[in-house]
Nucleic acid binder design. Structure first.
Ligand SMILES: [Mn+2]
Ligand SMILES: [Mn+2]
Ligand SMILES: [Zn+2]
Ligand SMILES: [Zn+2]
Lengths: 150, 150
DNA sequence: AGGATATTGAGACTCTGTCTCATTCGTGCT
DNA sequence: AGCACGAATGAGACAGAGTCTCAATATCCT
């Protein structure tokens, strides 16, 4: 009865229980093609009467982030959003209009990080790079993708 | 009676009124050597009985960010902090222990940005890079600088 | 000095995220 | 299949961040 998805199997693999709320949320997240918010998931869960509590949404996001199945984005306006992710280290280009993201490997960035470390004397442990702009579809004037406020 | 500071003169130059609350906050911010938070300013203003309201702190931070006198940091834990800034575009290395930051120019980063644009087809309009680690003082086991939670 | 208006403080309000606690559910074991 | 145990859940209280309204005040231009 458990339909395995990348997210649910990642949960399983990490030793978390495969509960109904987690499976429901995994499905909701799989539907998203751009970034999504906690509030959005809560609304979606409620409107589809999935019986998933608000606290559980936040707790699940926390777990999914911990296992690297999703990643938090800090949008320019200050709001937090999430995107589904491969577990390896990478960064995102985020479309300011439709919210879609593309993952990017950061080969070149390593040079920058090392350079900064040498320059400033800091020991650099983590870094975050986020790029914002317009995705190819939105550049092409594609009106189809769901519009986003803010 | 107005003691001009970099922040107050930036405000003036941008056409904002030089009010007492803004001058008080500019002074508080000048005192900070690491990053600081809205809540921290509110607390400092209240404890020093500066008579600066909470709403005014948020409004002032908004204005200062708009004129580029400060910049918002998105800390790994998700909290927001601010640092005083030069107006030119740059990024920050942030000490996870004492909160001090160093500014870095992003010469090398331009290459990365262009590369990403070509690779993904996005038109990249803005980007944010934040590096976290330990500053030279904290690396040296310097216990002096004020410790920070989180 | 006088007046238009930008700015302020107080407090209500909204939204995000956390916590508690009694109840339920998943899972490993028999 | 049945049990037992701990992990996970929902409801709702709670805490904090940030926004908004509005009447009162202060700034700054003339
Ligand atoms: Mn990703
Ligand atoms: Mn800066
Ligand atoms: Zn787009
Ligand atoms: Zn430090």
């Amino acid at each position: 009865m458990a339909t395995p998805t990348p997210i649910t199997s990642a949960l399983d693999r990490a030793g978390y229980r495969l509960t109904a709320p987690r499976q429901a949320l995994a499905a909701l997240i799989a539907d998203q093609d751009g970034h999504f918010t906690a509030a959005g998931l809560v609304a979606a869960a409620r409107s589809r009467r999935l019986g998933v509590g608000r606290a559980t949404v936040f707790r699940t996001l926390e777990v999914l982030e911990a296992i690297g199945a999703i990643e938090r984005l800090d949008l320019p306006g200050g709001e937090h959003a999430y995107v589904g992710c491969k577990p390896a280290h990478h960064h995102h280009v985020v479309c300011s209009r439709c919210g879609r993201t593309s993952e990017i490997r950061d080969a070149d960035l390593q040079r920058v990080v090392r350079h900064v470390a040498r320059q400033t004397g800091y020991r650099v442990d983590e870094h975050r790079l986020e790029l914002f702009g317009l995705c190819p579809a939105c550049l092409a004037g594609d009106a189809r993708p769901k519009a986003r406020k803010s």
